[in-house]
Amino acid sequence: MNALVTENVEKKFANHLALDNVSISVPKGSVFGLLGPNGAGKTTLIRIINQITAPDKGKVFINGEKISSKHIKNIGYLPEERGLYKKMKVGEQALYLSQLKGLSKQETLKRLKYWFEKFEIQSWWDKKVEELSKGMQQKVQFIITILHKPELLIFDEPFSGFDPINTQILKEEILNLRNQGATIIFSTHNMASVEEICDHIALINKSKKIIEGPINEIRNNYASDIYEICFDGYFNKLESTLTSDYKILDINETMQKTKMKIEVLNKNIKPNDLITKMIEFGNINSFNKHLPSMNDIFIKLVGETNSQTE
């Protein structure tokens, strides 16, 4: 079951094609990373999902239904460029924005009380937003985004401007929401946090979707034959038997153990062949296939598509 599906979405601005035939499927209950370099079209896609703009072509479905204004209350959106009314008090503002989402006043007050207590920020209620620091403002905005318990949450760079402690708190809250059944779309440039919390991703570059799928599958698909090995034995002897089919990328020798990265250049050689070779000279403590980081995949894919179009 998919919480959100976009089907061949296209959006044109004057002479510029912002989205070209973009189809993504966000599984229910997943944390879905929407990745792409600046200006790729992510924000436009997010705005289309939020019904801020409409696509020129293509369709968007939420829980299998074509999107309409009744879905607005099911979506929570934290835009990258965050902002609140500076002169308005925190409490009033939270109340106003939640009521705009269709929440009743009593219900809003009840939930706000819960979250303000949880984050220990009750004393901010009567403060004007401009009196708060940037991080504090973001915290308030985070609460406002999730207050109406949306089924679909869209976070655009949610961690920017937070210190490590608050980033951790926020990460936990996001995963909590996922565990309670919410689906989360997560747009960021921070690939480390993508690896950490996303289970699915889609990569958009130059208005087109390049790749989409479960993150582990993608990392496996893009893995080259590199192995991370911890070896306990006669490394010198091993090294002399390695032919040109192998390439040692990285080596780190300690007292007895040797940590190394070996790339297998010949496609016919299987990992087992390497292992057989190695056990002649010593013991293997660990043997892992090296998975490329999301960062590497991102750079590789974006670089490839860019050189194709040029």
């Binding site: 801020i52 607005i72 959106y77 835009p79 902002g83 009314y85 924005l97 705009l100 989402k101 905005q141």
Partner: peptide, 8 residues
């Protein structure tokens, strides 16, 4: 703030 409001 406008982007938050026009999403509602």
């Amino acid at each position: 703030i406008v982007e938050v409001i026009v999403s509602s």
